[in-house]
Computed example of a mutant assay.
Amino acid sequence: MAIRQIQSLIPAHPSSDGDGVRIQRVHGFNNAQFSPFLMIDELKSDNSADYIGGFPPHPHRGIETLTYMLKGHFQHKDHMGNVGELTDGGAQWMSAGKGVIHSEMPIMTDGELHGFQIWINLPAAKKMQPADYHDFQSDVITQYRQDDGSLVRVIAGDLTIKGTTLAGPLQQTGVPVTVADWQADNPARFNSCLNPDFQALLYVYRGEIDVEGTTVKAGTLAILGNGEGLALSANEQAGVLLLSGLPIDEPVVHYGPFVMNSMEEVEQAIADYQQGTLA
């Protein structure tokens, strides 16, 4: 079984979004090796001033978002009447489809906020489908405790470990993806089988890991090459998100909250939003 090797490393960079929310961001809108993922934002702070303004009502079209909170709450409200509040360890998924207008407000718990928002592209055939939303609290996230004490949490799709397939609660996505979180508090190893047709990314958010002889430190995204096997190790505390999905071989045109296949489609999304017909 071919083990995936690191093709490139991309450090996250400081950015700001919403009402001045400070984040660490990695994006790959026009990077074919990123597909079907578009962007990863990490929100981490022990200072409420870094995010108190949150993300006031704003539109999206053509993407899905997956928000995952390690620590802290995240309130969601949208034009469809959905209201959800994540707690520690929970996740929420939103498909913007044709259009959604929503707000998101992060809330610190125990003096800390730490979470992620992942943008996932939609294929052209699904960009104009109706919007949808689901949230998943921590108790429904699939968990697997390894013999070395490390914890695997499967949020979306399926992940195979030692011949056992773990199914995350989120299966309804516009393109097949697997999203999982590996947490190690001591020296540990993580081995898994991935769909060989999927591309795979690793985002290290705590400590550092070793991938076939290459060290990946916190705040860094690793793009992996082809293969079926995945082998990671950590010598101390570590945390890493695994993002794997079926690539979308289509043009990507990104402008603000809209991701479409042509500039004409983006301009139409802007016009629809201005005229009140986006959602």
Rank of each mutant, 00 (worst) to 15 (best):
A167N: 05
D139I: 02
Q183R: 07
V154H: 10
D158H: 13
V152W: 03
P130A: 11
L151F: 01
W182E: 13
D147W: 05
F190W: 08
D132S: 15
G174R: 00
W182F: 08
D148E: 12
T173S: 08
R153K: 15
T165G: 05
D139Q: 10
D158C: 11
K162Q: 14
S138T: 08
V140L: 01
A167T: 13
G174C: 03
Q137R: 07
A167F: 00
V177D: 06
A156G: 03
A156H: 02
G174H: 00
D158K: 15
A180T: 04
R145M: 11
G149W: 02
P130W: 04
A131R: 12
L170R: 04
D148I: 06
A180F: 03
D135Y: 10
P176D: 08
I161Y: 08
N191W: 01
D148C: 08
L151S: 04
V179R: 03
P130T: 09
V179I: 13
Q129E: 14
P176Q: 02
T178K: 00
Q171P: 01
V152I: 15
K162G: 12
D147P: 09
N186Y: 06
P176G: 11
G168E: 05
A180G: 03
D158E: 14
S150A: 14
D135H: 14
K162D: 15
L159R: 06
D185L: 05
G149S: 13
R145K: 13
G168T: 03
D139F: 07
D185K: 02
R189G: 15
A131N: 13
T164Y: 03
S138D: 14
L170V: 02
R153G: 09
V154Y: 09
D135K: 11
D148T: 12
L151T: 06
L151N: 04
G168D: 04
Q129Y: 02
G149E: 12
L151W: 03
Q172F: 07
P176V: 03
R153H: 07
T178P: 01
A131D: 07
A180I: 10
A180P: 08
V175L: 04
Q143V: 12
D158M: 10
Q171S: 12
S138H: 07
I161V: 15
Y144N: 11
Q146F: 09
V179G: 01
Q183G: 03
T142F: 02
R145E: 14
D147T: 14
T160G: 11
R145L: 15
G163F: 00
L151A: 02
F136K: 03
V152Y: 05
